Simulated scan of single mutants.
Amino acid sequence: MAIFIGEDTRLVVQGITGRDGSFHTREMMEYGTRVVAGVTPGKGGQTFEGAVPVFDTVESAVAEAGANTSVIYVPARFAADAMFEAADAGISLIVCITEGVPVGDMLRVLPYVRDKGARLIGPNCPGAIVPGRCKVGILPGQIVREGPVGIVSRSGTLTYEVIFQLTRAGIGQSACVGIGGDPLIGTDFVDCLGAFENDPETEAVAVIGEIGGTDEQVAAAFVAREMSKPVVGFIAGQTAPPGRRMGHAGAIISGSEGTAAEKIRAFEQNGIGVARRPADLVGLMRDRLQGV
Rank of each mutant, 00 (worst) to 15 (best):
V218M: 11
P242Q: 03
M246L: 11
F222T: 13
A219W: 06
A219N: 11
V232H: 07
A236I: 05
Q238H: 03
T239L: 11
V232Y: 14
I252M: 14
A251E: 01
P242R: 04
V232N: 10
A219K: 05
G250D: 07
P242V: 00
S256A: 13
G250V: 04
A224T: 09
G258S: 11
P230Y: 06
R245K: 10
A219G: 14
H248E: 01
I253A: 02
A221E: 14
A221I: 08
G243Y: 02
G255R: 07
R245E: 00
A219Q: 04
I253W: 13
V231A: 12
V223Q: 03
A236K: 07
M227V: 13
S256V: 11
A221V: 13
G237D: 15
G250F: 04
R244T: 01
G243H: 00
G258P: 03
M227W: 15
S254F: 09
G255P: 02
R244F: 03
S254N: 07
A224V: 11
M246D: 04
V223H: 02
M246P: 06
V218I: 14
V232E: 01
A221L: 05
R225M: 12
I253N: 05
R244D: 00
G237C: 00
A249L: 09
A236Q: 10
Q217L: 12
R245G: 02
M246F: 12
V231P: 03
A249R: 08
M227K: 13
G247K: 04
P241A: 02
E257C: 04
A240Q: 02
S256I: 04
A249I: 03
A219L: 09
G250N: 12
I252S: 06
S228D: 15
E257G: 01
G250S: 09
R225E: 14
R244C: 05
I253M: 07
E226I: 09
T259R: 01
V232K: 04
A221G: 14
P242M: 04
G233E: 02
Q238C: 10
E257I: 03
A236L: 05
A221Q: 07
A251P: 09
V223R: 09
P242W: 01
P241G: 06
V223C: 09
I252K: 03
E257Q: 13
R225W: 15
A240D: 10
E226V: 08
V223E: 13
A224K: 14
Q238S: 05
H248Q: 12
G258M: 03
P230A: 05
V218A: 15
P241K: 00
R244I: 09
G237H: 14
R245M: 10
A221K: 10
G250A: 07
G250K: 11
S254R: 07
P241W: 06
P230F: 08
T239P: 00
G247L: 09
E226F: 11
K229Y: 14
I253F: 08
H248M: 13
G233T: 03
I252E: 12
I235T: 12
V231N: 04
A240E: 00
P230T: 13
S228Y: 08
G233L: 07
H248S: 06
Q217A: 14
G243C: 00
A220T: 10
A240F: 00
M227G: 13
R245W: 00
G258K: 10
T259P: 06
A240G: 11
